[in-house]
Amino acid sequence: MKIVVCIKQVPDTNEVKLDPKTGTLIRDGVPSIINPDDKAGLEAALRLKDEFGAHITVITMGPPQAKIALQEAYAMGADRVILLTDRVFAGADTLATSTTIASALKKLEYDLVITGRQAIDGDTAQVGPQIAEHLSLPQISYVSKFDHKGDHAIVKRTFEDGFQTIKVKYPCLITALAELNEARYMSVAGVVDANRSLEIETWTFSDIDAAPEKMGLKGSPTKVKKSFTKGVKQAGKVVEGTPKEVATALVDKLQEKFII
C-alpha cells in the first residue's frame, strides 16, 4: 500500500499570547509544531505500515524552515519526505494551496491520501476536501477510526450527534481527527538518521505541472482584506472579602442588572 500524508507546520497556538495593552499577537518564541490532526494522520499511516507494510510519503508545502516538520515525520518512521517550496506558492488561500498540493500528488503514487481535518492556525478544514476534489477522490472527513480491509477501508466518520461507519474503496482521501490515535515519539535511530543522512527532496514550481496563475496569491479567489484583534476589554471589577461578602455583592450586582 502506498500512502501520502500531508502535514502542515504550524505555530503552537496554545503558546500564542495577546499583548493586553496593544491587542497584538506576540509570536516571538512561539514554537513550531506539526499540526496535531496531521500527526494523528501520520500515526495512522505508520500503524498501517507496522501491520500490513506500506510505503509512506510525507509532503508539506511551506517555507524552507518547514523542513523541521519533515525531519520529525521521518524520524517517526516515514519513508520519503518532500518539501514543496517556491515563492510562487506564497500567499495562497485554501483553493490555491490545495491546487498546488494536488499537482504534486499527481506526480506520486498513492492508494490512500491522509490530511488532517484542520490546521490550528488557518483553522479552515478546507484543504483536505479540496485536494480530494482536484484528484477526483472520494473523501471521508472527521475520521476517528480507520480499518484497512484489503481493497477497501472501513472508517468511522464522526458528527456532532453521532457517527457513521463508512466503507470506501481505495484510492481515497481521509481527513484525520487528533482523537484518531496517540502519536508515537520519534525513534532515536530515526532522529540520528534524520540529522545525519536524510536528504529532504525539495520540489519547486518547475517540478509540478500546474499553471502559475492557479497558485499562490494570484490563484486565490479569497483575499484577506483586513486582520485585527478584538478590542481589549476593560478589566472588570474585582470583588474581595469573605465568601459571604463576595456572594452578597455578586447577587446584588445581578439584581441590579435585572438578571435575577
Partner: peptide, 19 residues
C-alpha cells in the same frame, strides 16, 4: 457543512471563507 462547502467551492473554482 465543512465537508460539503470546500468540495463545492473547489469544483466551482470560487472562494470559501471558513467559520
Amino acid at each position: 457543512g465543512r465537508d460539503l462547502a470546500p468540495r463545492v467551492a473547489a469544483r466551482l473554482n470560487t472562494g470559501l471563507t471558513a467559520d
